[in-house]
Computed example of a mutant assay.
Amino acid sequence: MSQIEILNQEVDVGNEQSSYYRMLDGRKYFRYITIDPGTLDEEDLAFPPALLQKLPAFPTGDWNCGRIARAENGVPYFVETNKQKLPSINYIWHEKSFDYLSLQIKQRFSANVHLATTPHPENRDVVAKFARFPWEVEYYALETRWYERIKGHGIGPESSGI
């Protein structure tokens, strides 16, 4: 299996509903993985090192969303993979923005807020906040609109549009 990193997870504690993961495959591809309920033990779903050992090999090809279920023999497998157009923040009001993969993550403040260093030539520390899953994008789209409205009024943080 290529290098897989679990960036975010939303695990159903009772393992009665699907669990969701945002993963980085080979430091190059974002993969949004849904794991059907009962596919793996709850402890494995919540503990990334154990989960990574139990995941099936990632299929090749051009895909960003996949669903894993348990086969009749009990082995997890990819039921489906597909390429979806995921929601994004389309209105970028600030002149500076950086691709997630260009940032050097230094410290995690919460699941979606990190201290990061921007790429050269700026090479400065910033607070980077991002949507973990597609259903969160609209929240951040609204938040960025508010940052635009308060910019220059001395009442909010300096915003780099990241």
Rank of each mutant, 00 (worst) to 15 (best):
D41M: 01
F58N: 05
K96M: 10
F133T: 14
Y21C: 05
L45N: 04
P76S: 02
D99A: 10
L45H: 02
A128F: 15
A69N: 12
E95W: 03
Y20H: 15
V137A: 04
H120I: 11
D62G: 02
F130S: 05
V113L: 11
N8E: 05
Y140E: 06
Q104R: 15
R132N: 15
I150W: 14
H94N: 14
A57E: 11
F47P: 00
F133W: 11
L51W: 03
E10A: 13
K129Y: 00
A57K: 11
L55C: 05
E43G: 07
G152C: 08
S160Y: 15
E158H: 10
R149L: 15
S2N: 10
S110M: 04
D12K: 10
K96V: 08
R22N: 09
G66F: 09
I150C: 04
Y20G: 00
D44Q: 09
H120S: 14
W93A: 15
R70D: 06
A128G: 03
E43H: 10
K83N: 11
Y147E: 01
F78S: 00
N82M: 06
Y140D: 09
I105R: 14
A50K: 12
A57S: 12
E95Y: 05
L51K: 04
L7F: 03
E5H: 04
P37E: 02
N82L: 03
A69G: 00
K28S: 12
L86M: 05
A141C: 10
N73R: 06
S110E: 07
G66I: 08
G74N: 07
H114Q: 11
D41W: 00
Y32V: 01
N8Y: 05
E16A: 12
R124S: 12
Q53R: 14
G61E: 00
F98C: 10
N112L: 06
Q53S: 13
P49D: 01
L24M: 06
I155K: 03
K96E: 13
V127D: 02
K129R: 15
A116T: 11
Q9N: 11
D44N: 07
P157M: 10
M23L: 14
L115P: 12
F78C: 02
V79N: 06
R67I: 13
W135P: 00
Q107C: 09
I68H: 06
Q107V: 05
P87D: 02
L103Q: 11
T34Y: 01
G14Q: 05
K151N: 14
I6P: 09
E10F: 08
C65D: 03
K151C: 09
Y32E: 04
Y20T: 08
L101K: 12
A46G: 04
V13G: 04
E16S: 15
Y139H: 13
L24R: 02
Y91E: 15
F78Q: 03
N8H: 13
G74H: 02
C65N: 06
A128T: 07
D12W: 04
N123W: 03
F30V: 06
K129I: 11
T118I: 07
P59I: 00
L52R: 11
T118D: 00
D125N: 13
R149T: 13
G161H: 05
K83Y: 11
Q53W: 00
V13L: 13
Q104H: 14
F30A: 03
D99F: 01
N73K: 07
E10K: 14
S19I: 08
I92A: 11
D25R: 03
S19D: 08
L115T: 04
G38T: 03
T39A: 09
T34V: 02
Q9M: 14
D12F: 08
A111M: 07
E43Q: 12
R67V: 14
I35E: 01
